[in-house]
């Protein structure tokens, strides 16, 4: 028996919004530790790694490890039927071929349940090597989303250049070129507004705007985003989900031909 309850459906809606542009379907691996999802996009350029810890749920029970392959388009249709404030419960029997989503209104007067067929997905699990990153940048998630959106007007790629002084995002194309520099903040009233840079070695890497923009769909989950970079290895874009877990996106860099 698997059962996981969150007091507000909005969290699960935001999690799904953060992955459904990159993935059509994905396997949710459930254990007593929580829910894990790891999947590459169809073109094998990026990877989504989601962790939702069991202690972050309002109720969590998982008697046997369970892998639930879900069509994210179908899951999205179902979650649209929930109000943001509804309690959401996911339930499945051991070895079941369906999962049930139950939504309950705050006043307990409306209860709906939606049963969704599970899929058998060919899982390809990738081992992600431990890496000491040369640069780790933390910045407001909204600021990162804004930069990705603005720069994608100028080219298909963004060059991220990180030094001790700051981080520079650049794009160029037919229109011309654009550069956005962010300096490390000296003092901020609120921690979530800070830009911090931990640098061992300066790095300059090129990434596809398309994917960076897809990652920023996680912005509603977190005030801050963390970018971890080293030369010639995938970028890690991490959003922490308060009290529940995190979503990490890995993106392979582009190289000069």
């Amino acid at each position: 028996m698997f059962e996981a309850r969150l007091n507000a459906a909005t969290t699960l809606k935001k999690v799904l919004d953060a992955i459904k542009d990159l993935l059509n379907e994905a396997t949710f691996d459930c254990s007593d530790a929580g829910i894990q999802l790891q999947a590459m996009d169809n073109s094998h350029v990026s990877l989504v790694s989601l962790t939702l810890r069991s202690d972050g749920f309002d109720k969590f029970r998982c008697d046997r490890n369970l892998s639930m392959g879900m069509n994210l388009g179908s899951m999205s249709k179902i979650l649209k039927c929930a109000n943001n404030e509804d309690t959401v419960t996911m339930k499945a029997q051991d070895n079941a071929d369906t999962v049930t989503f139950m939504f309950e209104s705050q006043n307990h007067e409306k209860v709906s349940d939606y049963e969704m067929k599970l899929m058998n997905l060919d899982q390809e699990h990738l081992g992600i090597p431990e890496t000491d990153y040369s640069c780790v940048v933390r910045m407001p998630a909204m600021e990162f989303a804004r930069i990705c959106r603005d720069l994608s007007q100028f080219g298909e790629s963004v060059i991220i250049c990180c030094t001790k002084e700051g981080v520079k995002f650049s794009a160029s194309g037919d229109v011309g070129s654009a550069n956005i520099k962010l300096a490390q903040t000296s003092s901020v009233d609120k921690e979530e507004e800070a830009v911090t840079i931990e640098m061992q070695e300066p790095v300059s890497l090129t990434f596809a705007c398309r994917y960076l923009n897809a990652f920023t769909k996680a912005t509603p989950l977190s005030n801050q985003v963390q970018l971890s970079m080293s030369a010639d290895v995938p970028l890690v874009v991490e959003y922490r989900i308060p009290d529940l877990g995190h979503i990490r996106y890995y993106l392979a860099p582009k190289i000069e031909e």
């Binding site: 094998h44 699990h125 990738l126 081992g127 090597p129 392979a252 860099p253 190289i255 031909e257």
Partner: peptide
């Protein structure tokens, strides 16, 4: 022009 690399060249299959 820059060429997009695949993630598979960085991560091992487990």
């Amino acid at each position: 022009m820059s060429k997009q690399q695949s993630l598979k060249s960085f991560f091992n299959r487990t």
